[in-house]
Design a binder for these strands. Structure first.
Length: 862
RNA sequence: GGGGGUGUGGUGGAACUGGUAGACACGCUGGACUCAAAAUCCAGUGGCAGCGAUGCCUUGCGAGUUCGAGUCUCGCCACCCCUACCA
């Protein structure tokens, strides 16, 4: 065997195998009904310009799954593309005068090259960019189908307006009253907007979560909370001196007898009307508007209200009138914008009642309590009782437990025609209109005569104009001199195009389906989606737990109902990876410093390289440009190679936990790869030819290595199946150590060495594919691992003849004994009791009991 | 306020359904090789006591269940994340 060059040449090796895979077309997927399919997908990137470490982790995780599944014989689809519409492109246009399309295209080209250096097993022939009219034309068509089926509609509504981005934000994009991207306080405006009727699927989206058993519980819970189903009732309170009544939603109809007031939102129509001739009320409403949704307003959260002077009649109690207050804590967006207050059993109502001197009427008491004294105490308390109990002071509800009382109260309301049982959702319809240029044009035309007219199918796609001026503010599409002027498709008179574009979550809600047939003339070829969908393993950041993942689940159902495809759930398996973190550094003036601008000079000291000024080290946080604690993946791949970067991403930290980037860590990965290479090209024995069968006799050391290899094959396979990549790496390193410790002079050592090294190459191939191919080739194989099969452990080698059994006295370890596997209990007990070390602890005490767990433990109780 | 999660050596983390805690790695210490360094290889490395075989202690803290608890139950403490006036 040649032992010429022991140095591992990363650059050459990685480039060579990447070219070889591409030349052989190893990763191009085609429908094959005779094989089981497996669709692996990582959340596609926004082409911001450069990839970051989060991308590297994401794609590494996905690639390990893809390569492992492929080796297992699955027909694997593993595509990549670009979430290419969005604000940063437009901001670049405004700031630097570069056209969004040009900016985006060049970013895609740069990032594609960066991603290619990672050696991912992607089918690049399926690449899509959502800003291509070839992509977005299909969603325009889809939108028109949604429109025809009532799944899309237009209405005037209050919107969250981001004053920095000059655009409307979805509720999900407002975080603590601020725009999720700009961080600017959101304002409220009233605009005519397009909506998708996601609420129609509220129940199905909620119920569907139950079936997603390969999703993290955390994400399912977040979606369930977001959908926010609550059971309750609508109650009508007749307004004294008016013809109509006040509609209220409540989840506690059982506490109606404890009602002492009603409260309505400052935006409630009744409030608006009453404010017209009530200056104090009008002033209060104005004050509420001023505070708006700002964070500070919510923080202080003082419950304030104004008595309108109007009263309503209690539905069950003749003669009891309740005052109607306008209160700042009642939201117009939820329920009916009006509530009834039962201070005894709702803390918020209690706070309000104590502030404004409203009565507190206990109507629920704990099951075991003396209801009289409990009620007396509660009526003077300021802590509401919101727990379960039994109804008191409530006429026909007395004695009923809360659950039954709710039912009985609803039944009575329905009999009286004063209300009905109902279910409320927190989920709102998805506003998709954005007043921006760089997005998919909404394919409708506004005609003064005909109203909103869909763009005829033959005229699709509605393409974005290219000659656009970005210097002004607001929507450049709207300011374009000619683009929006078109004849009405129905009457032919002058009309204008819709100048809003879709929210970019629109594009990402169906791209996984487009990958199935990315070049089809229709959105997707039915037989292709039927074969590939749903995605078997989806991988990405937990930050998309609600937005993107919920929209995609909705969209898939909407597409299903429009006949596009046959499934309802897009992703049967979801994995949310942890973030990449790094220490943060600040210079003397408090300014952030990059990791490559500082140097660690001692255990506690870090200095700035430029001037040796002391640096303050902050805790490890998510890598972010603003804190400058970023490490550029390209620099790492350039100096250590893709395999080392991939290996480090997979080692140590479980993939769902945050990963601390460290130079020592990447160094360790690099050293391990070199060790593997040395062991491959410079074995301590001459290796037998490829395919040599196992010798009949083998020395103990060789035999132990063969067994260890089989055990490793079994363990790594199991770990990869469960996405426990960190332990898979540990198992491989363990086997590597065992190979290094082999006594090369023993009988069968050469075979054992070859077998272990070949197995190692195959086992690490999904994780570090380049060096695995190089090892495989150096070991004399000519078929690439990328198209090779996954190794299978021989069960005969997974069990040893003997096993080490722990011996305890009263549960404390006192020694071990070597026993034959599945030894008789009596044998085990005798062997344990014969141990000198055990005798020393037992002494002359009586053995009261001996617990024997076969192959594990003998516990002597004295 | 509500919901969820985490807590194991100097560090990242292992430990299947309760069964030899600390796998694997980083770091550190000593040694070999070298003129020297790097790389590599070998040995050691939870704490305390002891020359030593060994002993005692140890999975945030405190109880409990059990022959046996990192793992199960109850009560605390700390940190992190999500969510938030949702009636």
């Amino acid at each position: 065997m040649a032992r010429t060059d022991e140095r591992y040449n990363v650059k050459e090796t990685e480039a060579r195998w990447q070219a070889a895979w591409e030349a052989a077309g190893c990763f191009a997927a085609t429908v094959d009904p005779t094989r089981p399919k497996y669709y692996v997908l990582e959340m596609f990137p926004y082409p911001s310009g450069r990839i970051h470490m989060g991308h590297v982790r994401n794609y590494t995780l996905g690639d390990v799954v893809a390569r492992h599944k492929r080796a297992q014989g699955f027909n694997v689809l593993h595509p990549m593309g670009w979430d290419a519409f969005g604000l940063p492109a437009e901001n670049a246009a405004i700031e630097r005068g570069v056209h969004p399309a040009v900016w985006t295209r060049s970013n895609i080209a740069a990032m594609r090259e960066q991603i290619r250096t990672m050696g991912l097993s992607l089918d690049w022939s399926r690449e899509v960019a959502t800003c291509d009219s070839d992509y977005y034309r299909h969603e325009q068509r889809m939108f028109l189908d949604f429109l025809a089926r009532g799944l899309a509609y237009r209405r005037e509504s209050w919107v969250n307006w981001d004053p920095v981005e000059h655009t409307v934000l979805a509720n999900e994009q407002v975080i603590d009253g601020r725009g999720w991207r700009s961080g600017a306080p959101v304002e409220r405006r009233r605009l005519s907007q397009w909506f998708l009727r996601i609420t129609k699927y509220a129940e199905e989206l909620l119920a569907g979560l139950e079936t997603l058993d390969r999703w993290p519980d955390k994400v399912r819970l977040m979606q369930a909370n977001w959908i926010g189903r609550s059971e309750g009732a609508y109650v009508s309170f007749a307004i004294n001196g008016a013809a109509e009544s006040l509609e209220v939603f409540t989840t506690r109809p059982d506490t109606l007898f404890g009602a002492s007031f009603c409260a309505i939102s400052p935006h409630h129509p009744l409030a608006t009307r009453l404010a017209a001739d009530n200056p104090a009320l009008a002033a209060f409403i104005a004050e509420c508007d001023r505070l708006g949704t700002s964070e500070a307003a919510i923080e202080t959260a003082e419950k304030k209200g104004v008595d309108t002077g109007t009263t309503v009649r209690h539905p069950f109690i003749a003669g009891r009138d309740l005052p109607v207050h306008v209160a700042n804590f009642v939201l117009m967006e939820y329920g009916t914008g009006a509530i009834f207050g039962c201070p005894a059993h709702d803390q918020r109502d209690m706070d309000f009642a104590r502030r404004y001197g409203l009565p507190v009427r206990p109507v629920v008491a704990p099951r075991d309590a003396d209801s009289g004294s409990f009620a007396a105490a509660l009526s003077t308390s300021s802590i509401a009782f919101a727990e379960d109990g039994v109804l008191i002071n409530s006429d026909f509800l007395d004695g009923l437990p809360v659950v039954e009382a709710k039912r009985a109260a609803i039944a009575r309301l329905e009999t009286l025609g004063q209300g009905r049982g109902s279910i409320q959702y927190r989920l709102r319809d998805w506003g998709v209109s954005r007043q921006r240029y760089w997005g998919c044009p909404i394919p409708v035309i506004h005609c003064e005569t005909c109203g909103v007219v869909p763009v005829p199918e033959a005229e699709l796609p509605v393409r974005l104009p290219e000659d656009v001026d970005f210097t002004g503010s607001g929507n450049p599409l709207d300011r374009h001199p000619t683009w929006k002027n078109v004849p009405c498709p129905t009457c032919g008179r002058p009309a204008r195009r819709e100048t809003d574009t879709f929210d970019t979550f629109f594009e990402s809600s169906w791209y996984f389906a487009r990958y199935c047939s990315p070049h089809a003339d229709v959105a997707f070829d039915r037989s292709e989606v039927d074969y590939w969908l749903p995605v078997d393993q989806y991988i990405g950041g937990v930050e998309h737990a609600v937005l993107h993942l919920l929209y995609s689940r909705f969209f898939t159902r909407a597409m299903r109902d429009c006949g596009y495809l046959g499934v309802g759930e897009p992703f049967t398996g979801l994995f949310t990876q942890g973030m990449i973190c790094h220490e943060t550094y600040r210079g003397p003036a408090g300014e952030w410093l990059q990791p490559d601008q500082v140097e660690r000079t001692g255990p506690e000291t870090v200095e700035r390289l430029a001037d040796r000024a002391p640096v303050t080290v902050g805790r490890s946080e998510k890598m972010s440009k603003s804190k400058k604690n970023v490490v550029d993946p390209s620099l790492i791949i350039d100096s250590y190679g893709a395999d080392a970067a991939r290996l480090f991403m997979l080692s140590d930290s479980p993939p769902d936990r945050d990963l601390d980037w460290s130079d020592a860590g990447i160094d360790g990965a690099w050293r391990y790869l070199n060790r593997l290479w040395r062991m491959t090209v410079a074995p301590p024995v001459d290796l037998p030819p490829v395919g040599t069968p196992m010798p009949v006799a083998a020395a103990a050391g060789a035999m132990a290595l063969i067994r260890a290899t089989h055990r490793t094959i079994a363990a790594v396979g199991d770990d990869l199946e469960k996405l426990r990549f960190n332990t898979a790496v540990a198992r491989c390193r363990e086997l590597t150590n065992a190979v290094g410790a082999l006594d090369a002079s023993g009988e069968g050592a050469a075979f054992a060495y070859r077998f272990a090294m070949e197995s190692l190459a195959r086992l690490i191939a999904p994780m570090t594919p380049h060096i695995a191919e190089a090892m495989w080739e150096a070991l004399g194989h000519d078929r690439m691992l990328a198209v090779g099969a996954w190794p299978v452990a021989d069960p005969a080698f997974l069990v040893d003849d003997t096993v080490t059994v722990a011996v305890q006295v009263n549960g404390k370890l006192r020694g071990t004994v070597e026993l034959p596997v599945d030894a008789d209990q009596a044998v085990a007990q005798a062997a344990a009791l014969a141990l000198p070390a055990l005798q020393a602890h037992v002494g002359d005490k009586t053995v009261r009991k001996v617990v024997v767990v076969p192959n594990r433990i003998v516990n002597v109780v004295v």
